[in-house]
Design a protein around this nucleic acid. Structure first.
Lengths: 234, 234
DNA sequence: CAGTATCCAGTTGGATACTG
DNA sequence: CAGTATCCAACTGGATACTG
């Protein structure tokens, strides 16, 4: 902020957005976290005061807005059109990282709770039965060994303690395997046929699994890169 | 750096690249600044110590490399393939800014010297005569009132004092007009036909002006946005 | 629950002088 | 020219407690 902001699009943009949290907050809102504590939960390491300050700035920039929630009782954070327009920036950064800086996860990077949190936003309720669907994940390794994804037509939530609902499908596999699948290092098909991951429960839901369960937005890029590396020069 | 880096492409990428200078340094190298002081010159507000530190980090990241210069006497900074791959990130940020945060320049944002510096990297020597071409810019307003662009087949340099060469073409116009043209708020054609900018000198060079003189990489986007704004809803 | 206020340690970064 | 070393002021950001 010391130097006069140069009149140059890249320079201005970098000054507005390029800090440790702004884009991550935008991404978090983009994938479905719409209130303060939810955003905070999705961004480990971010402190309350910094989030508050960044939210203010992003509102000033017209990237995020506070709107009345459907109930009208409260308000929530939503992206404006300018905020949605940051998707290409986020994709470009993620795409670059995936190409140049994204090895398979080390064991200490495996965080099952965070993975469930990410999975939550990938669910496509259109391909699920009416009413509530409860998926229980049994991880055979990692920091958290069991978690629930509770899905209704409009909402997806993560529980780390038994919510008490009937379990529609139980998913078993190692946290490492799930990370590899989610981020595209390994295909779901492969993990299922080798038995690294197993699905048990209501048939219609397990069979449609790949339909309603979306992977990370970078999974296909990671997979392509892995292929290229295996075929060094065509 | 306090929190454990999350295993997520966007998060990792943001941590690696999203600071006030890294991407701007990459851009500066990309457009033709290959040594320390040249980069420094292109980035007002950046201090020597910070540049040194960022260059080290970018080398560590494999984005920039120090290579022997053609003469072999010295070395220079060049982008690696990973560095060139950051172009989409830079374009995405610049594109977003141009769409949402890029009004016409205020008078105090007009910096003719910096504009010449930017123009330097847009020159396409293919469309210029053999040998040296010297363009003199006479600005009718702004911080710097006269500047020279000295172009050879392989190099383009900026002088703020008379280099002494024969002037091939003299360009006259206000700094504000040039900013508007360069960044796409106004077309060169328009500025020439209204006489806001005039070109004098060797005919073949003036006639080919739009061929060898490239505008900012965002000029076309700025122009498109301006059009859209004039036709509110089609 | 959704933030704000306060405090303080740690880091960043600008200026300047210096070295090879 | 191409950086490095040093110094110090300013800012950042985490922790915690507090308010509506």
């Amino acid at each position: 902020m010391s130097a006069a902001p140069e009149y140059c699009p890249v320079s201005i943009g970098v000054n507005l957005l390029a800090d440790r949290w702004s884009l991550l907050i935008v991404r978090e809102v983009m994938v479905g976290s719409h209130n303060f504590n939810t955003i905070l939960r999705g961004l480990p390491g971010l402190s309350r005061s910094v989030l508050a300050s960044r939210l203010r700035q992003l509102q000033r920039l017209g990237v995020i807005a506070q709107v009345q929630s459907p109930t009208g009782l409260s308000h929530e954070y939503r992206l404006t059109e300018a905020g949605e327009d940051l998707l290409p920036v986020i994709e470009a950064i993620g795409g670059w990282t995936v190409k140049w800086w994204f090895p398979e996860p080390r064991p200490d990077q495996v965080d099952n709770a965070m993975l469930l949190w990410r999975m939550r936003s990938g669910v496509r309720p259109r391909h699920l039965p009416e009413g509530r669907t409860t998926i229980r994940f049994d991880f055979t390794d990692g920091n958290v060994r069991r978690g629930w994804l509770v899905l209704t037509g409009t909402e997806a939530s993560v529980c780390l303690h038994d919510p008490g609902y009937d379990v529609t499908v139980t998913v078993t596999g190692s946290g490492t395997t799930w990370h590899e699948v989610w981020y595209g290092h390994r295909t779901l098909d492969d993990a299922l046929t080798t038995g690294a991951i197993t699905l048990d429960g209501v048939r219609s839901v397990t069979r449609a699994f790949p339909k309603w369960f979306a992977l990370s937005m970078f999974a296909s890029t990671v997979a392509e890169n892995a292929e290229k590396r295996e075929l060094p020069s065509a």
